[in-house]
């Protein structure tokens, strides 16, 4: 009956709101300390006592994964314009080599619930000391309870590589700045092997253009790639560049300048027009 439904909803909400009583710095701590095994939103607290809410994946490979960021392309035609928080919102500018600098600062933005509709970054990005990373590619605008099922690609690392780089991306990108002209193509950061949770090496390969497929090897996540024109990109998701330096066609995030004009969070994914299966796209 409608009354029962209301009661069920109430009890459900009551159970969810109990989560605000947990004290933990990561989803792993919540899973370990409170034995929570349900995916969803939880409150976390930073070392300085700042409380924030984020999504916890409590199921993949033993669970305890904390969502710390999302990179969302609001307009593939934009060139370092509004919404390009993971490169630059200040135009393609040689004088702003770091762009917005969000890969290596303590700025935060967006909400966990809105992570597939806009860029997201929470204090966990710099506060959590982690060992491994997991990445989900979720079609834009999907609601949180369907992220897992809707994802076109999901994978994680399992070799604890973050221990070597300070425990999170904030520290890793201090070692490998995402900055225009910081080095050349041969100066890329680490490429870490991945374990697939949805998809495989072949589906990863097919997500990118014909020409990029000749440049990379799938089955890795790579950090701070640099292209022929000395533009820096933050992450090559699912791939490792091995033969060529046109990483602007398959790596995301970046500094503030791309020669000539490919600046953006998904820099030149649209080079030969989108989804046509030709050239670089």
């Amino acid at each position: 009956t409608p009354q029962n439904l209301t009661r069920t909803n109430f009890e459900h909400l009551e159970r969810l709101s109990n989560r605000s009583r947990y004290v933990a710095r990561s989803c792993k701590e919540i899973r370990d300390r409170y034995n929570e095994q349900e995916d969803g939103l939880y409150y976390l607290t930073t070392a300085n006592g700042m409380v924030y809410q984020t999504f916890c994946d409590m199921t993949t490979a033993g669970g305890g994964w904390t969502l710390v960021a999302s990179v969302h392309e609001n307009s593939i035609n934009g060139r370092c314009t509004v919404g390009d928080r993971w490169s630059s919102q200040q135009g393609n500018n040689l004088n702003l080599p770091d762009g917005d600098g969000n890969w290596s600062n303590r700025n935060t933005f967006g909400t966990a619930e809105g992570a597939t509709s806009d860029d997201f970054k929470n204090p966990g990005y710099y506060d959590i000391k982690a060992e491994d990373m997991s990445v989900w590619h979720v079609p834009n605008n999907f609601p949180l309870d369907h992220w897992n099922l809707a994802a076109i690609l999901r994978y994680h690392t399992n070799n604890r590589f973050l221990r070597l780089y300070g425990g999170n991306l904030f520290q890793l990108f201090k070692h490998y700045p995402v900055r225009y002209n910081i080095g050349s193509c041969s100066n890329r950061g680490p490429a870490v092997p991945i374990v697939y949770d949805h998809g495989d090496r072949e589906t990863t390969r097919m997500f990118y253009g014909l020409k990029p497929r000749k440049e990379f090897e799938p089955g890795f996540i790579t950090f701070r790639a640099i292209n022929n024109e000395r533009a820096a990109m933050a992450i090559c998701s699912g791939v490792k560049p091995i033969a060529g330096c046109n990483t602007e066609h398959y790596c995301i995030g970046g500094g503030g300048y791309f020669y000539p004009d490919q600046c953006g969070d998904f820099p030149s994914f649209d080079y030969d027009s989108l989804g046509m299966g030709q050239g670089w796209s």
Binding site: G64, V71, Y208
Partner: peptide
Amino acid sequence: ASKEMTEAAVLLFYR
């Protein structure tokens, strides 16, 4: 890149 890839947000997790 494929339309699928470009029209998907990239969610980053730590553990």
